[in-house]
Design a binder for these strands. Structure first.
Length: 421
DNA sequence: TCTGGGGTCCTAGGACCC
DNA sequence: TCTGGGGTCCTAGGACCC
């Protein structure tokens, strides 16, 4: 048996957790640069504001419904996510932290002690008690079915936030009333194609021929079909797997047009990516840089390009990564373009024991580990006191975050104060 | 004026090898 | 006129997830 527990409107709920005054307000959280809506609480959804809506387009709705708006504060959400996961971990034998607001768990021997439904409520109550966050729980024979139960728990409030299904007839009933596009692993494109094939509900998909599905789509969707039938194909991933790539990319607060500014941006992204690489204890051999204009600026000349620099010796030294990134940027830079976004991607990872290449002229830098270690220790508190000159100071392209909340849980000066008496 | 960021996996097609 | 078969590896692009 598999279960999934996820937080309702995670980011919006994190913002509300430390703002009791917002308890009956609609709350929305915006993406980087305050661009789009990326999280909403229940009242905000009721106001008709959709996921992904550009902020400037829904501003009238936001004003009309007095929606409290926040810039995204991932430091806060990350810390609340860790608290949420640790509560779930304390109550289950095996867990997989699937995303910032979701944890899968196994529920195999639960029924010897209590019903699955009771167990779901136990988890839910514990998370509420320790974090104030409200969750939905779904439990069934596979991850995909658990996801579907979780969807049911959130869609029909009468269930009280928990749906645990083991009865085949009840599972069939649920599958028959859920649109195929709600199934985990079925996105917009596949849903559309399925619909043309006469497959409209989750039950239609569960009853589709597996060979037909594999031929017309791929093995992943075939597994989804099997999972809907109660055959588990996606195992619990208890230990986080090593990353295969690290991406740091950002849309600019204002368009970048000069090479100088672009170099500063790319240097900053490269430095951030290198820091994350060291956090993963990895070394990389490929550094990719991409730049592009905004597809929404229809009057601009459109341009997008990317280039990869390959190293013979794997590195995790920020200086090597910045140098490579600048070489890649030089290859794709074009004057006279209004750039909207750029990014740095690291790939081709090696562990520490990576062999030195006999023909490589650029041997690893002496004292690199010590220097990078020191850099990371100084910057660990998040204040970014030490940075590379190439990143520039106070660049004009930095992201907009007009409605940023405090770091309630990770910064001493932001800890909430309570008045007594 | 203003449209996110960070991942994974699969597949098709090309280069190359024998 | 006639132009193999089988394999690997890599990459780009497209799908999906949150």
């Amino acid at each position: 048996m598999y279960g999934i527990i996820d937080v309702n409107g995670m980011f919006a709920s994190c913002e509300q957790a430390f703002r009791p005054d917002l308890v009956n307000r609609a709350v929305a959280v915006l993406s980087s640069n305050d661009g789009n809506i990326i999280a909403r609480n229940r009242l905000c959804k009721l106001a008709g504001i959709k996921m992904g809506d550009p902020y400037f387009k829904v501003r009238p709705l936001i004003e009309k419904h007095n929606v409290a708006v926040f810039s995204s504060n991932f430091t806060l959400y990350g810390s609340m996510s860790a608290r949420f996961a640790s509560v779930v971990e304390s109550l289950s034998a095996n867990t997989e932290c699937y995303s910032v607001d979701e944890v899968f768990f196994t529920a195999d021997n639960i029924e010897k002690v209590m019903s699955l439904d009771e167990y779901g409520h136990q988890l839910r109550n514990a998370v509420k008690l320790h974090t104030t966050l409200v969750c939905g729980v779904g439990i069934s024979y596979s991850k995909t079915l658990a996801k579907l139960c979780n969807y049911a728990a959130k869609t029909w409030p009468a269930y009280g936030g928990v749906v645990a299904l083991t009865d085949r007839q009840r599972i069939k009933k649920l599958l028959s009333i859920v649109d195929v596009s709600e199934v985990w692993g079925v996105g917009r494109k596949i849903a559309k194609t399925l619909s043309l094939m006469g497959i409209h509900t989750a039950l239609d998909l569960a009853q589709a021929d597996t060979n037909f599905i594999r031929k017309n789509f791929n093995v992943v969707l075939e597994r989804t079909v099997r999972e809907l039938r109660g055959e588990s194909c996606f195992a619990l991933q208890e230990h986080p797997v090593t990353k295969q790539q690290i991406v740091v990319s950002r849309s600019f607060g204002q368009r970048v047009t000069s090479l100088d500014e672009m170099q500063q941006a790319v240097t900053g992204y490269a430095a951030q990516a290198a820091e994350r690489l060291r956090g993963e204890n990895q070394y990389c051999k490929a550094i990719n840089v991409f730049v592009r204009t905004s597809p929404f600026s229809i009057n601009d000349v459109q341009y997008g390009n990317q280039a990869t620099e390959k190293l013979l010796t794997p590195t995790q030294d920020t200086r090597d990564i910045i140098t490579a990134a600048q070489r890649a940027l030089a290859r794709i830079w074009k004057d006279g373009i209004n750039y909207a976004k750029a990014g740095v991607m690291l790939a081709d990872f090696n562990g520490r024991e990576a062999q030195l290449n006999l023909f490589d002229e650029s041997a690893p830098r002496e004292g690199s580990d010590k220097l990078m270690g020191l850099l990371d220790r100084i910057n660990r508190d998040g204040r970014k006191q030490l940075f590379f000159a190439g990143q520039g100071i106070n660049p004009s392209f930095k992201v907009r975050r007009d409605w940023l909340s405090p770091e309630y849980t990770t910064n001493w000066k932001d800890i909430p104060r309570a008045k007594i008496g």
